[in-house]
Structure formats: C-alpha cells, structure tokens
C-alpha cells in the first residue's frame, strides 16, 4: 500500500497548494511503494514544520512515526493535550484532538464506527499521547480500552514530566528526580506501564528508546499490524524533555543511548498468535523484495 488514491486528477495539479504538489513530486502521495523510515531525508515527509522545541526527541519520534505507518492514507491519529500534539497535528494524516486524557475512549468509538462504515477496508487508528495523557489523567480510559480488547494502537511518548506547563512531576517521572514545579523530589517509582499493558491484555507491547530508526519503524509497524487483527497494542517510547531535564540539545541522543543502557533497554512482548501472524507477513514482504 502507499498513498495511491491521493493522486490528483490530470489538469488539476497546478491549482493545488505547493505543499500538496511537493508531496506528489518528492513525497509519498500517489506512489504505490511503502514509506521507508530508513530513507528519511531522501523524500518529502508527510509531517511538516512544527512548533516543538529545538532538539526535542519527542518531535523526532513523531517524525519517525509518520514515516513508519504501514497504511498512511487510511490511518487516523488521535492526540491529547501535551507536547506531542504540536507536531502530530502538522501532518497530511487526519488528526483528532480530544479533551485531556480521553484519547483511548475516543479511539475505541472511532475504531468501532470505522468497522461499521468501511467493513471492506482496513483502517488504522493510533492514539499517541504523553505520559500525562495516558498514565495519569487518562489512566482509567487507557486501562479500560485495553480491558475491552479494543483493536487499536496506543503509543506513549514518555518525557517523564509535564513539559509544557512548567515541569510538574508525572506518574512516569523517575524516583528522586527534582523538577522545577516539584522541588522536593519525587517519592515514588515510575509506573510500570508495560507490565500493566501486558496484564490488561495487550497482544503486543514494546518499550524502546529512540536510538535505532530501523528498529523503531519495525516496532511501530508491527504494533499497527497486530492491532488490526488481534487486539490492543502498546508502545512505550522514551522521548526526553531537554528543557525540563536540562539536557543540552546536542546531547539528546547521547542521553537516549545512556538511558537505553540503564533502564530503557529494548523489550518486546507479543502473544504466540501475533508472533505467527507477523512472521508470515514479514516473510511475504521479504519474498516480494
């Protein structure tokens, strides 16, 4: 799949906005081959200029996320208040912005409605929100969507702080960390989000730090493909906040690599049927190449 049906009718191209025409000439619109995250920088991406901070690794994750979608023309992205929505909303993919923390409730309804409206088409729904949106304020809605085995992907971009309200501690901040609005230091451990997801019935759970593009793309793809057939999937990604954690922008990648060694090592869990399904798909893709 690709972005096949976004090809404009002949003679109409010259009246389209420049961004759209660029996406046809240098980007993925109207082409049949898949987006390839390992070729970032060699095509025009579907995500555009965004107002996130310089050197923000959450923005980087969003960029890789949009380049790894298996079926971008039939994908709907949901976001909530928080940093990530600033970049998520600047892409040529439908984006829904709900109230704080209700991404997974909205996504549940949307997934069911799309099934009824387009029974013969594959539509992907991805809820992508921060640690506050999914694990603090939206906690009950996130958990219940997993209990109900709703078939969509949830991605948590974990910056371990309430980044754009001045630096309050979140449930995902590490123990003992001092933040601008939490000067006494955090007294509790990080919420074990991936463990909760496994217990709640997610069929595919992954934890990663964004240091390896190929692996990130593979994980995002796998999570979306598994969600189509089997049930809820969850990705926990470390996307540091260089402002609140005072990381010099040029050392953001270094920090991610260090955290990967310390407590954000790559973890992947999937049920046996998902493993079998994904192996079959990946084998077929390899044969086609």
């Amino acid at each position: 799949m690709g972005l096949r049906y976004l090809q404009p009718a002949p003679g109409f191209k010259e009246y389209l906005p420049k961004d759209y025409v660029d996406l046809i000439d240098f980007g993925p619109f109207g082409k049949t081959d898949q987006l390839d995250a390992t070729k970032l920088g060699q095509f025009k991406e579907i995500v555009e200029e965004h107002p996130m901070c310089a050197g923000c690794f959450m923005a980087y994750f969003v960029r890789v996320f949009y380049a790894s979608l298996p079926n971008p023309e039939d994908t709907i992205v949901l976001g909530t208040a928080g940093c990530a929505r600033l970049a998520l909303s600047q892409a040529a993919v439908p984006f829904i912005y709900g109230n704080y923390g209700d991404t997974n409730a909205v996504a549940s309804g949307l997934t069911r409605a799309l099934k009824l409206r387009f029974p013969d088409k594959t539509k992907d729904v991805v809820a992508i929100a921060g640690d506050g949106g999914l694990m603090d304020i939206g906690f009950s809605m996130t958990m219940h969507s997993w209990f109900r085995k709703e078939k969509f992907t949830t991605i948590m971009v974990d910056n371990e702080v309430y980044g754009n309200t001045g630096g309050q501690e979140s449930g995902m901040s590490p123990k003992g960390v001092q933040l601008k609005m939490a000067p006494k230091g955090k007294k509790f451990d990080k919420i074990p989000a991936t463990e909760l997801a496994k217990q709640a019935g997610c069929v595919y759970v992954a934890k990663l730090a964004p240091t390896n593009v190929k692996r990130m793309a593979k994980v995002i793809r796998r999570a979306i493909l598994a969600a189509r057939e089997f049930g809820p999937t969850f990705i926990h990604a470390y996307t540091s906040c260089n402002i609140e954690y005072s990381i010099p922008t040029e050392e953001v990648l270094k920090d991610a690599r260090e955290r990967e060694k310390k407590d954000f090592g790559f973890e992947e869990y999937m049920t046996d049927e998902v493993r079998q399904y994904l192996e079959e798909i990946e084998k077929k893709e390899k044969a086609n190449k």
């Binding site: 970032l40 920088g41 555009e48 200029e49 690794f57 923005a59 980087y60 960029r63 593009v213």
Partner: peptide
Amino acid sequence: TLFCPEANTLMF
C-alpha cells in the same frame, strides 16, 4: 538525516 528532529530540514 536519520536523526534530525525536524521534518524536511536535513536532506540528502
């Protein structure tokens, strides 16, 4: 080009 956080900025 794989590690720039900005889209369509550092190109090849």
